[in-house]
C-alpha cells in the first residue's frame, strides 16, 4: 500500500519521536509512505486566524503538489489532517474560493482539481491495515496494559466521516489488537488546550490536568495519542500541570505508533521512547518486559 506522506512541521521537530516510530513500523505493516517533495506548512490554526485566503492557498499548494501522484495523502498530524481536509472540502463547496485558489496556484505554476483524498495515519492503520493484520503481526502481546485512548479534537471534528466525533472507536480497537485493554475514557475527545498552552498557559494546564486525572482514575497505565500537540502538552507539560494543580500525575503519554512498535517487538531506541519527557513507569515497564 503506497501513499503520499505529509509529515507536517511538528513531526519534523517536537514530535520527531512520532516520526521515528512511524518509520519503524511502516515496513512491517506493509505501508509505503513516500514523503511529498518540498511540502510546506499547512497553516494550522494560527494562519487561519490572521489571513483566510492565504491560509487556504498555502495549504492548497501541498494538495497541488500531491495530485500528480494520484495517491491518498497520509498525515500523522491531526492539525494538518484537519486543515488539508478543510481546504479540500471548501475548495469543492465554495466555487468562489475555488476560483481564487485556482488563480493563486496558477501564479506559482501549479493547478489543483480537487481529486486528492487526505487521510490520517490512524485511518490508514485502522481501515487499510486493520486490527486483524496488526494482531497477527504482534510479537509481544501487551496483556495487562491498561491504556487510555486519547483522540483529541481535530482528528474527529469537524466530522471527516471516518470515526464518531464524540465516541470514536478506531484507536480503541487498535489498542485491543495489541492485547492491551482500552479503558473507558469519557475524555477521549476533549480538548488539551492545543496552542493555548503558549498563550494562556494556566487554562491549558488545567485542561490537561482534567485529561490526566481522567486517565488515572480510569485506571490507565498510560495514555496513547496521535496528535503532536496533544502529546507535547500532556507529556512535556505534565510536571507543570502537577505544580499548578497540586497533583502528582506520572503517566506516560505515547504515540499509538510507538505502542504498536513495542508490540511488534521493535527495540525502544527505534521507537523514540527515550524522547518521552515522562519516562515509562515501573508498572508499564514490567508489563512490556513481561510481554
Amino acid at each position: 500500500m503506497k501513499y503520499t506522506y505529509y509529515p507536517g512541521c511538528s513531526v519534523k521537530a517536537t514530535a520527531n519521536l512520532y516520526q521515528e516510530s512511524i518509520d519503524a513500523i511502516s515496513p512491517i505493516l506493509g505501508l509505503e509512505l513516500e514523503e511529498l517533495e518540498d511540502w510546506n506548512c499547512c497553516g494550522a490554526t494560527a494562519y487561519m486566524s490572521v489571513k483566510e485566503l492565504m491560509s487556504f492557498a498555502i495549504s492548497a499548494r501541498n494538495l497541488a503538489l500531491a495530485e500528480p501522484f494520484h495517491r491518498d495523502v497520509v498525515t500523522p498530524c491531526s492539525a494538518c489532517y484537519l486543515v488539508l481536509n478543510k481546504t479540500n472540502q471548501y475548495f469543492t463547496e465554495y466555487p468562489d474560493l475555488r476560483k481564487k485558489l485556482g488563480q493563486a496556484l496558477e501564479a506559482g505554476g501549479l493547478s489543483y482539481s480537487g481529486n486528492i483524498r487526505v487521510r490520517h495515519i490512524l485511518d490508514v492503520l485502522f481501515n487499510d491495515v486493520g486490527p486483524e493484520k496488526i494482531s497477527s503481526l504482534v510479537k509481544k502481546r501487551l496483556d495487562g496494559l491498561r491504556v487510555a485512548p486519547y483522540y483529541g479534537c481535530q482528528i474527529v471534528r469537524p466530522e471527516m466521516g471516518f470515526d464518531d466525533p464524540d465516541d470514536p472507536q478506531s484507536m480503541d480497537r487498535l489498542i485491543e489488537s495489541l492485547g492491551a485493554t482500552s479503558v473507558e475514557y469519557p475524555l477521549k475527545t476533549k480538548c488539551c488546550g492545543a496552542s493555548l498552552m503558549g498563550t494562556e498557559e494556566d487554562l491549558a494546564l488545567r485542561l490537561c490536568c482534567e485529561l490526566l486525572t481522567g486517565a488515572e482514575s480510569a485506571g490507565a497505565h498510560c495514555i496513547v495519542t496521535l496528535c503532536p500537540l496533544c502529546q507535547m502538552n500532556l507529556d512535556v507539560y505534565q510536571s507543570k500541570v502537577n505544580r499548578l494543580c497540586r497533583m502528582k500525575h506520572n503517566i506516560p503519554v505515547l504515540y499509538i505508533t510507538q505502542l504498536i512498535g513495542i508490540a511488534l517487538g521493535l527495540p525502544s531506541k527505534d521507537l523514540g521512547l527515550d524522547k518521552l519527557a515522562v519516562k515509562l513507569t515501573k508498572p508499564v515497564k514490567e508489563i512490556l518486559q513481561g510481554a
Binding site: 520527531n16 483566510e52 474560493l97 481564487k100 505554476g109
Partner: peptide, 30 residues
C-alpha cells in the same frame, strides 16, 4: 530530548510559495 531543532528548514521552492501568496494579496481576501 532532541525535540527542538535549532535551525529552520526552508523549503526549496520558496519563490513559488511567495508567488502564490502575492497573487492572493492581489486578489484580496475573501
Amino acid at each position: 530530548k532532541g525535540r527542538l531543532p535549532l535551525f529552520p528548514h526552508k523549503i526549496k521552492n520558496i519563490d513559488q510559495l511567495r508567488k502564490i501568496l502575492k497573487k492572493v494579496d492581489e486578489l484580496g481576501e475573501i
